[in-house]
Amino acid sequence: MPYRNPTPTVDIIIMIPGRGVVLVKRRNEPHGWALPGGFIDYGETAEQAAVREAREETGLRVELTGLFGVYSDPARDPRLHTISTVFTAVAVDPTELKAGDDAAGVEVFAPGKWPEPMVFDHARILDDYLQTLRRLAIR
């Protein structure tokens, strides 16, 4: 049996200050709402992939603001075993918001007011993100 590795991906939590988090409605299976993101291309850094995927799926130019975490549950994506590096970002110009690439739609949602169904483990990622924001606000 040939040796197999998980596939590296990125997801981006894009905040639009005063409005919320950008989510895309997937055109392809699995259908539902997701964070912008996708596969890292050969020869591309995770950071480059995050900026590229954000632009392709949402029309937004983004500034990465941090590394949020790594999500690697083998069951996180029903298509194959992926490991996602999750970044946080802000939109450079929120007026550029427009669905593109494999996104059937794109919208901004108030924190905690996520649409359904959420795909992959993105509801968990967003819940973890909100918990982190709450912890930081307490300090």
Rank of each mutant, 00 (worst) to 15 (best):
M118R: 06
V21N: 04
D41E: 15
F68R: 11
I40D: 02
D102A: 11
A104F: 14
G112F: 00
H31P: 09
V62C: 09
V22G: 03
Y42M: 10
V90M: 11
S72L: 08
Y71I: 03
E57N: 05
P36I: 10
K98G: 09
L67I: 07
A99G: 11
L60R: 01
R55C: 11
R79T: 13
D102H: 14
I83T: 15
R27F: 11
E116I: 06
P78V: 14
V62L: 10
P115M: 08
P115D: 00
V62I: 15
A91M: 08
T85S: 05
V51P: 00
T85Y: 10
P111K: 00
V92K: 02
A50K: 07
E53P: 05
T95Y: 03
V92H: 00
A91W: 04
K98N: 12
E53H: 13
E96I: 00
G69Q: 04
R61W: 12
T65Y: 03
T95M: 01
A110E: 10
R61C: 09
Q48N: 11
P74S: 12
G38C: 05
R27M: 15
V62E: 07
V92P: 07
T85R: 12
A99E: 13
L35H: 12
E56H: 08
T95E: 12
P78N: 12
R19Q: 14
A89V: 04
R76Q: 15
F109K: 04
V62K: 03
E53I: 02
H81R: 13
Y42S: 13
V86R: 03
P94D: 01
E47I: 02
T65C: 04
G66A: 06
A49N: 01
V86K: 07
R19P: 02
D73A: 12
P30S: 09
R52T: 04
T88G: 06
R27D: 15
P74N: 11
L80P: 07
V21C: 06
F39Q: 08
H31Y: 14
A34V: 03
L64R: 01
T58Q: 08
G37E: 10
V92S: 04
P111Q: 02
E57C: 02
R52L: 05
